[in-house]
């Protein structure tokens, strides 16, 4: 069970993130979590969204350099030591977490050098793995409630 992350190449200049967000808005895509890392010259923007393929299409149509890739999305219990426990599982087995960022509250995203194995390991642990459908459902429920 992985989640589809959208990564976008962007120059580190004002407005470049906004351009991407505007494209998402135009495509009716809701951002559930993101990370922006840069080297000073250029950066990689990473997004977890409710509709990753719609997001990808909107970006590609606009000519953006972007890719979609599988990452793990974990829901941690909000108590001390929990993040350390989860990371420890992967560390013990020699799986490197390349980068990680948190989504809404305790939802975090992990990109690893071995997503399948990392998933297998974490699936055996008391931690909730989030599916792409879960993300879409949460958004859909909220929309329904507001309507």
């Amino acid at each position: 069970m992985t989640v589809s992350q959208i990564s976008v190449f962007a120059n580190s200049r004002p407005g470049h993130m906004n351009r991407v967000l505007d494209l998402f808005e135009g495509a009716g895509v809701s951002v559930r979590g993101f990370s922006a890392a840069d080297t000073g010259e250029y950066g990689i923007l990473r997004f977890i969204v409710d509709k990753p393929y719609e997001a990808l299409e909107a970006l590609q149509e606009a000519g953006c350099a972007c890719v979609i890739s599988p990452v793990l999305c974990l829901k941690l219990v909000d108590k001390p030591g929990e993040l350390s426990r989860v990371m420890g599982v992967l560390a013990k087995c020699g799986i490197n977490v390349v980068y990680s960022y948190s989504m809404i509250s305790t939802y975090i995203v992990l990109s690893t050098n071995d997503p399948e194995r990392a998933h297998e390991l974490l699936a055996e642990e008391p931690v909730e793995l989030i599916s792409q459908d879960d993300i879409a459902r949460i958004v859909a429920e909220r929309v329904a409630k507001e309507a």
Partner: peptide, 8 residues
């Protein structure tokens, strides 16, 4: 666009 890789 096709040359982009999600890796610094």
């Amino acid at each position: 666009p096709e040359a982009f890789r999600d890796s610094f």
